[in-house]
Amino acid sequence: MTQWDINQLFRTYHARLRHFVQKRKLAWYTADDIVQDTFLRVVATPSLPDVKYAQSYLYRTAQNLVVDHFRRERILKFVPDAEKSLEYVASDSPLPDQIVWSRQELRRLQSAINKLPASTREVFVLARLEGKTYAEIGEKLGIPPQTAFSRMVRALTLLRDQTKIDEKN
């Protein structure tokens, strides 16, 4: 495994990533925030893949953040007092404190993801990485969308429980 040179990667990929993010029709400041967030996450992530995967890794992380951004925006529209209720969602800060993860926490979370049962993990990954809906996941896996939903609930519960349990140990 070759070490990641974050500065080098930033120089190489910053503009490309910004273009990639901006194509998703985000305001320029949000695109910049997301690119910045992407690199900050790289810094925080304890177990990076080999540097030869850096490009796809960066794009995938940025894509996840874009999808999350749209999801939050969508939810904000139907929460009347959103700024109060979901304040970090509405925050202008590029990386609000509430979503910063320490390396140790990310290590626990990675461990929890690795331990997800195969069928649960499959649903989680399709939703997380590919942004698929429960209906699409159901179609792909040959299961009812309800089952896909249940497995997502299960995945989130396992991740929550596992990170909490490990935290206590």
Partner: peptide
């Protein structure tokens, strides 16, 4: 509680799957 789950989800954005 909702923010906690959002945070959990956000935390997975850069992890290996």
């Amino acid at each position: 509680a909702f923010l906690d789950i959002e945070r959990l989800w956000a935390g997975t954005s850069s992890l290996d799957m």
